[in-house]
Simulated assay, not measured.
Amino acid sequence: MKKLLWFLVGVAAGFVLAHFVNKDPRGREVLAEVDARIAEFTERIGDAYRLEDARLGGTDAAAAASGSTPAA
Score class of each variant (00 low, 15 high):
10 G>M: 09
51 L>M: 09
68 S>T: 14
52 E>N: 07
10 G>W: 10
47 D>A: 07
51 L>R: 12
19 H>I: 14
57 G>E: 02
30 V>R: 09
47 D>R: 13
43 E>W: 06
36 A>R: 06
57 G>L: 04
55 R>L: 11
45 I>W: 07
33 E>G: 08
10 G>Q: 06
22 N>Y: 12
37 R>W: 01
27 G>L: 05
29 E>V: 15
43 E>Q: 12
60 D>S: 12
65 A>M: 15
44 R>M: 05
70 P>D: 02
12 A>Y: 01
43 E>S: 14
65 A>V: 08
53 D>M: 08
26 R>H: 09
21 V>C: 06
7 F>A: 14
6 W>C: 08
61 A>C: 14
28 R>Q: 14
41 F>T: 00
25 P>W: 05
59 T>E: 10
41 F>P: 00
9 V>Q: 09
41 F>M: 00
15 F>N: 08
45 I>R: 03
44 R>N: 09
4 L>W: 00
52 E>V: 10
20 F>P: 03
14 G>T: 05
35 D>C: 01
23 K>Q: 15
3 K>D: 11
13 A>E: 07
4 L>T: 15
39 A>H: 02
23 K>C: 09
8 L>S: 09
16 V>C: 11
9 V>R: 03
14 G>N: 07
42 T>F: 06
61 A>T: 15
71 A>L: 11
62 A>N: 13
37 R>I: 06
27 G>A: 10
39 A>R: 11
52 E>A: 08
1 M>P: 13
9 V>W: 04
2 K>F: 00
47 D>I: 11
23 K>W: 08
62 A>T: 15
51 L>G: 05
16 V>N: 00
9 V>P: 03
35 D>I: 02
1 M>W: 02
42 T>R: 07
21 V>H: 05
72 A>N: 08
